[in-house]
Nucleic acid binder design. Structure first.
Length: 942
DNA sequence: GCCCTCACG
DNA sequence: GACGTACGTGAGGGCT
């Protein structure tokens, strides 16, 4: 048999394979080092630094006679494996990944490739099984394998041709070491582990039996099956009983610890041949990570000049730094991908780079209904491609055939090629508003990870900063670039077409531009996160919301359309009746829904008191005004108020909600905007499910239409007084904090302190006033505003406020401090480090008032938003295994759909997450309290 | 496309 | 003494 020089040497006798346990390296590195961050942008980098050091040390140590001919670093890919099917609790007690570790995973893959060592991971398989499989294959081929790890779970593999090496102690692990640890030979290790269990991986084992006892038993009976078969012979009654009672659990445990030598691996041993690192690529990577010492050390070793490790200086958020050095965008340069070979070329390049900007084009804006029409990719300035998938044939479409245009890859084939890249933990997917694309891909069975989002970067840097976070605005502001308006392709209004009908040659420049602009924005924003100290906020409060919200939105909520339709009908009748009455009282017919006409009727024709308002010169007919008129004894305004309430309920809710029911799912799917509110609150659109009525009885009936399917309940959990609790904490108000700790009625306490009356038997009116002040203070209260709210004289309101600040002087101090901070810095921050810009705070005159109040409110409202975000991010993991889904968020409330039998379990788990949400980032000096309710519908759950 | 009004926290 | 007047949102209907 001959071999060409190009082909790698056959793996066989004399070949020596090193298998490096990459995940163990990462965790060791992470815990061994302080939480380092990259200077230029604040990216957490400690684990990567440790990982690179260990890898470099390993390479230095493993030269010489027993140097490997082949090597690979193996990583865990996902937490769910076949073992979870055998035993759902497997590894279920693992603590959550530290927030600053996960983002380092892709970089460790990149590092491995930079060292030119094969980097292996496979969906649904643990690293240990891949290691076992490769070790078995190496042995079978006549070669040998060394496992670089100290993980006891791998010790079962030691034997002829397979040994282990502890990378930290730099010391071999052989049968003697194994015997020392387990008291048996390596081939019996699984039996020991099956009996003794493992609290780290949550392998149950036999209760009360540890390694010592297990070794005793196995050495006596030979192996596990014999032991179990002859358990009756055991003399100690307790031990005998345990083995007999738990035989099945022990067998399950054995299947959990036994590694699988038959993992279907997608490569050959030959492909793992050791390669000399590409000096330049490695040095480039190390210097980009800003590892000074290691860069110098490696350069020294290679006999090269170390590249400068430069730490870029902070750039102003609005300075178009990225656009200066990059060539202008050329839309005509883009590639159109029409076949698998071209796509594969792009995927290969993307794998090398480890990052790609991705954008999807769809036939509409509703991610739950729109079809995927194309995907664009960009790997850098001037490098973008458009992959058309669902464009229809223009000519054929005239006849409504919907035939696909020629020259497009089959959707299934393209997605099958894209999926591994989109799910590859080592490839960063960069998008603008990634949640949209995430959902489109999710509908095709792809869960895109890891992701970066330029919209969220913009929000982390510049929330409240006056410019939006949409791509067009960002391109304009930061790149000085005008994007093609979508109108130019699809038109607008009646003659608007869908993107599927746009010819491919017109679509490609547009789509490619979106991807390239996204890439450039990423390039622009990324180095600014660190210097502006928003990396943590971006990585812990923004990006992780993407999959959580996407899953909630895709789940949707079940709505009883019959109930809504009946209400609509009843409302229509009632409105008609009220209209008749109103027309009768007015003496003429007019459009009750027109404020203009109503104003003329009230103030001109009927000559009621109430002035003009606003620049438009129109009369105000707001509820306030009408209520005052009604209180004076006029009948018509009261009727109009009734009519308005019903009209609102009908048009905005009972009618509109029905039209939002998805045809396929039969449910209503809202869309949450992560950047919608500058304080960090979410905003819900299409439809807005955050303003479903609740304050009036009539309105609350609309919540009855939000139902759980058969066998399920709606469960609602909401934070009690969260903003006031945050105020008590941040303003450090002892009286308020104590009241919350004691769990007493906070408004009554406030009233008692202000007016010197006891809480017991308090006049409800007094409490109401205190409540209004408590809320008002959060918003930057004024005497005028409170007077209007409570309908009391302005002087009286001002007196209340004065008393309040006298009694709680810390609040005034907090407000002053916050405004000062905002004036000095141009922004304020929440407890969790989210930054909210405060433009206009240094203005003078009335305009400054609004900016001041917004600055005072933002840290409070923002911290509350952060707290519920943290809870939502942790929720999927916390309720895994409970038959429940998180469906809705309403600022301080989370709504779930739960199987009947699991309601209490869900409430316990979700409440714990919500009440402890600030941990460990912030230790609140007041308790958080979460109230829970359940029922067949949302009204009942409240 | 703006304004008014009103639904929510 | 006047200004404007509680924070944050989204949606529907009227009107230009």
């Amino acid at each position: 048999m001959t071999q060409s020089n190009d082909a790698p040497a056959k793996f066989g006798k004399g070949s020596h394979l090193h298998l490096i346990d990459g995940s163990a390296f990462i965790f060791r590195a992470y815990h061994a080092l302080p939480p380092l961050t990259r200077k230029s942008d604040g990216t957490p980098i400690g684990a990567v630094a440790g990982f690179c050091n260990m890898l470099w040390k390993y390479i230095q140590d493993s030269s010489g006679a027993d140097a490997p001919t082949h090597a690979a670093v193996i990583f865990d890919h996902s937490s769910k494996t076949f073992r979870n099917e055998i035993y759902p609790e497997y590894k279920a007690n693992r603590p959550e990944l530290p927030e600053d570790l996960r983002p380092q995973f892709p970089l460790t893959r990149e590092a491995t490739r930079a060292f030119n060592i094969a980097c292996i991971e496979q969906q649904d398989y643990e690293a240990d099984d891949i290691i076992a499989t490769l070790a078995c294959q190496a042995r079978a081929a006549g070669g040998t394998a060394t496992i670089i790890s100290s993980d006891k779970d791998l010790m079962q593999l030691i034997g002829d041709g397979v040994d282990m090496m502890d990378p930290m102690k730099n010391k071999p692990i052989g049968p003697d070491e194994v015997f020392e640890k387990f008291g048996v030979t390596p081939d019996k290790v699984v039996d020991i582990q099956a009996l003794a269990g493992d609290s780290v991986d949550n392998v149950p084992g036999a209760p009360g039996i540890g390694i010592k006892t297990a070794a005793l038993l196995i050495n006596e009976y030979g192996d596990l099956e014999t032991l179990l078969a002859r358990a009756g012979e055991i003399k100690q009654p307790k031990r005998r009983q345990v083995l007999q009672d738990n035989a099945e659990l022990i067998r399950i445990s054995k299947r959990l610890v036994q590694l699988d030598c038959n993992t279907p691996v997608e490569f050959t041993l030959e492909s793992l041949e050791v390669q000399e690192p590409n000096h330049e690529a490695l040095l480039d990577f190390l210097s980009r990570m800003e590892f000074r010492t290691l860069t110098n050390r490696v350069a020294d070793r290679f006999g090269k000049e170390a590249p400068a490790v430069t730490v870029s200086t902070p750039a102003a958020v609005t300075a178009p730094a990225g656009s200066v050095e990059l060539p202008p965008i050329n839309r005509e340069a883009y590639v159109t991908i029409r076949d698998a070979a071209t796509l594969k070329d792009w995927l290969a390049e993307i794998a090398t780079l480890g990052a790609v900007a991705v954008d999807t084009e769809t036939s509409g804006l509703d991610e739950m209904e729109a079809d995927l029409v194309g995907v664009s990719l960009s790997t850098g300035p001037g490098r973008a491609a458009y992959l058309p998938l669902g464009h229809v044939d223009g000519a054929a479409d005239l006849f409504g055939s919907g035939d696909l245009a020629p020259g497009q890859m089959a959707l299934a084939e393209a997605l099958a090629l894209l999926k591994p890249m989109l799910e590859d933990p080592a490839t960063l997917k960069i998008g603008q508003n990634v949640k949209y694309d995430w959902k489109i891909f999710a509908r095709h069975g792809i869960r895109m990870t890891p992701v970066e989002d330029t919209m969220l970067m913009s929000f982390a840097l510049n929330a409240g900063g006056g410019i939006g976070h949409g791509m067009d605005a960002l391109a304009e502001a930061h790149l000085g670039h005008q994007t093609i308006p979508i109108k130019e392709l699809i038109g607008s209004g009646k003659s608007q077409i869908t993107f599927a009908q746009v010819p491919i040659d017109k679509a490609a420049p547009y789509a490619g531009e979106d991807a390239e602009v996204t890439w450039r924005l990423w390039h622009f924003f990324r180095p600014q996160l660190g210097p502006n100290a928003v990396t943590t906020a971006y990585r812990t409060l923004e990006v992780p919301m993407i999959p959580v919200l996407a899953d909630m939105e895709m789940a949707g909520v079940k709505v009883d359309t019959d109930h809504l339709a009946r209400m609509s009908n009843a409302f229509a009748q009632k409105m008609a009746q009220l209209e008749d009455e109103i027309h009768g009282l007015a003496g003429e017919k007019f459009n009750v829904g027109s404020p203009k006409q109503l104003g003329e009727i009230l103030f001109d024709k009927m000559s009621l008191q109430g002035g003009k308002q606003g620049k438009t010169g129109a009369y105000s007919t707001s509820a306030d005004v009408l209520e005052d008129l009604a209180a004076e004894g006029h009948e018509l305004p009261g009727r109009v108020l009734d009519w308005r309430q019903i009209s609102k309920l009908k048009s905005t809710y009972t009618d509109a909600l029905q039209t939002h029911v998805n045809k396929e799912t039969g449910r209503v799917h809202t869309s949450y905007s992560i950047t919608g509110a500058q304080t960090g609150r979410l905003a819900s659109t299409d439809p807005n499910l955050q303003n479903i009525p609740v304050r009036t009885d009539e309105g609350r009936r609309i919540r009855e239409a939000f139902i759980a399917p058969a066998g399920h309940k709606i469960v609602s959990l909401d934070y009690s007084q969260i903003e006031l609790r945050i105020l008590a904490h941040v303003a450090d108000i002892p009286a308020l904090k104590q009241a919350f700790r004691d769990g007493i009625d906070i408004h009554a306490m406030t009233a008692s302190q202000m007016f010197g009356v006891p809480v017991d038997g308090m006049d409800p009116m007094i409490r109401r006033r205190a409540k209004a002040i408590n809320f008002g203070v959060i918003y930057g209260i004024s005497g005028f505003g409170l007077a209007r709210n409570l309908r009391i004289p302005r002087a009286e309101a001002q007196a209340f406020i004065d008393t309040y600040f006298e009694r709680f002087p810390e609040i005034r101090a907090y407000m002053d401090r916050t405004v000062e901070d905002a004036k000095r810095d141009g922004y304020v921050r929440t407890l969790f480090g989210r930054r909210i810009m405060t433009p206009g705070i240094n203005q003078s005159g009335p305009a400054a008032g609004g900016a001041r109040r917004a600055a005072i409110n933002a840290p409070i409202q923002g911290a509350a938003a952060d707290i519920i975000r943290r809870a939502m991010i942790r929720m999927p993991e916390a309720i895994r295994g409970i038959p429940a889904r998180m469906l809705l968020q309403v600022h301080d409330e989370l709504v779930f759909e739960v199987e009947d039998g699991a309601v209490d379990q869900l409430i316990t788990a979700a409440r714990a997450i919500m009440e402890n949400s600030p941990d460990p980032a912030v230790k609140l000096s007041v308790p958080l309290v979460v109230d829970a309710g359940q029922g067949a519908n949302w009204a009942a759950a409240h």
